[in-house]
Nucleic acid binder design. Sequence first.
DNA 1: TTTTTGGTTCTTTATTTGCAGAACCAAAAA
DNA 2: TTTTTGGTTCTGCAAATAAAGAACCAAAAA
Lengths: 160, 160
Amino acid sequence: MAEISDKRERLKAKVEEMGIYFEKKGLSPMPGRVLAFLLLAEPPYQDFYSIQESLQASKSAISNALNHLQRDGVVDYITFSGDRRRYFRVNSKSWLDSIESKINDITTLRDLLTDVLHERKDSKYLDFNEGLETIVEFHTFIAGKVEALKAEWNALKAGK
Amino acid sequence: MAEISDKRERLKAKVEEMGIYFEKKGLSPMPGRVLAFLLLAEPPYQDFYSIQESLQASKSAISNALNHLQRDGVVDYITFSGDRRRYFRVNSKSWLDSIESKINDITTLRDLLTDVLHERKDSKYLDFNEGLETIVEFHTFIAGKVEALKAEWNALKAGK
DNA sequence: TTTTTGGTTCTTTATTTGCAGAACCAAAAA
DNA sequence: TTTTTGGTTCTGCAAATAAAGAACCAAAAA
């Protein structure tokens, strides 16, 4: 069956390509590949062995990658009664939540720079401080808007 | 002069603490410390030797850290005629630009997921695809709003 | 009760990364 | 022209990280 192995090759290539994208986003190689695989796989839930098999990796690497992705809130698993295996999958909802919490994280840089400005309050270099203040203001501006956007988004989602 | 060395100790402690924050944000240790130092130093522009001296690090480590921060658009340098040295400093303006470009970067995940959805168009698992679509929509929503926010921010800044 | 299965954890190894120190280099100063 | 200065680049080395493989473990199956 040339088509099937063709398809598998295509999948493997896509997984590698997308894996590199996720590496750039801060994941290690194996978690990146596992995430890519779970996004592309049909069905979109896969058991431990099939993930391992597809990625040609060790059990420990897969186990650690899956646990990492679960801690990040991107992956979880489902089970079927009468079947011991866990079926791992991308959980869009909790992934979205973790994206949102990253957006909220904007405030931490603001807090740090506010702290810096406090340290610099006697500085003669007013331009420099003003530059930092602008960054603080920008973050405050964004943080304020984010709340409104979240509300708007939830309304939009509820409305359809 | 107990106060002066006290101040230096305080500065060093702050630099370490803030350095760890920047590490968590993705910088390596030395760039993180250099950035912290340049934020806290008085004056806010410092030459190569004083950075090296304060951080007790090698020339190569400082050189690489500074080049890294300059590529990131966080740091640049000024010069004074009749003085060979470069005075490195945090450039708030280009830092703000690089923050903005990070915000714009939201679209790359959207593009990747759009690609995934294209791959999955024949899938029977409609719920899964819908979950991914929601993430795509969220990113589209945010990307659209970001433009408006940028305009609003620029108006606000221009207006004062 | 023993065996199998679906993973996890521990140990070892290979790769990558971060940094020091030395060699180096171009421009300025002497 | 030689020397000094302000860095950069190269050469290791040490520490951190990623992954393999084996040992292990609990729950389910036989």
